[in-house]
């Protein structure tokens, strides 16, 4: 297993992701998007950052770069794909996952620690936790408000596609503990397959013990369990 971390112009969490994965003994390599994916990729991570300066919409340009066609094909073949922050925006813009991440309700960039409730523990990305667990994790985004048609959101909820919701430290969700105004406090969703997931918070920033809490390790360990 070697996770290909795709670097676009403006990615800036690619090296953090590499360090975090290596700390978990998961091989990782940074792949420049123009070079394309390696043959038979075994894992793909879309890291955070500000690809293409967030021009047009966050993630819009990167989502339409040629390497994303390869990513979609790999994802359809069952290769695990994780998008974090800008990678989550790219994931939604490219159709890997449904919905859109758009301007925070506050209209401000928000950089803070939040709590997430694990909504199901039977996906690779959440298998390290128990359903209902609360994890502490940072967000750092201006466009993280999950937006989708109400009817479609109800369907996604019926299909158990929501894997993380913003909550308080006791696991209660609601408008008061919704940092960006996301519909139904959605922080992370899976795609058509459980092996494809995106989330706005940064698990790679809470993985190395030297820098604080390590609640994010379980998300990245998904590459091994997928």
């Amino acid at each position: 297993m070697t996770v290909s971390i795709i670097r676009f112009g403006g990615s800036n969490c690619d090296r953090d992701a590499e360090r975090a994965l290596e700390h978990l003994d998961i091989d990782a390599e940074i792949v420049w998007h123009e070079d394309g994916l390696p043959e038979d990729p075994s894992g793909i991570m879309l890291p955070g950052g500000f690809s293409y300066g967030d021009y047009l919409r966050a993630g819009a340009m990167a989502a339409r770069s040629p390497i994303m066609e390869e990513v979609r094909e790999a994802a359809a073949d069952g290769v695990p794909v994780l998008g974090v922050c800008n990678g989550a925006q790219i994931g939604c813009e490219s159709g890997l996952t449904e919905g859109a991440f758009t301007t925070n309700e506050s209209a401000r960039f928000q950089c803070e620690h939040v709590y997430l409730r694990v909504e199901r523990d039977d996906t690779p990305w959440t298998a390290a936790y128990e359903e209902g667990d609360v994890i502490e994790i940072p967000i750092a985004h201006g466009e993280g408000r999950y937006e989708i048609d109400d009817d479609r959101l109800a369907e996604l909820e019926d299909e158990d596609r929501i894997i993380f919701r913003y909550c308080d430290e006791n696991g209660e969700t609601g408008p008061d503990v919704n940092p960006n105004g996301s519909k139904h406090n959605v922080a992370g969703v899976i795609g058509d397959r459980e092996t494809v997931a995106v989330l706005m918070p940064h698990p790679e920033r809470v993985t190395l013990p030297d820098v604080g809490p390590t609640d994010g390790q379980g998300v990245l360990q998904g590459f091994e369990s997928a």
Binding site: L56, R57, A60, R64, C92, E93, E98, G99, A100, T102, E147, I148, D149
Partner: peptide, 9 residues
């Protein structure tokens, strides 16, 4: 359809 708008929003 393909770039300028995001049909979701």
């Amino acid at each position: 359809e393909r770039l300028l708008a995001n049909p979701t929003i």
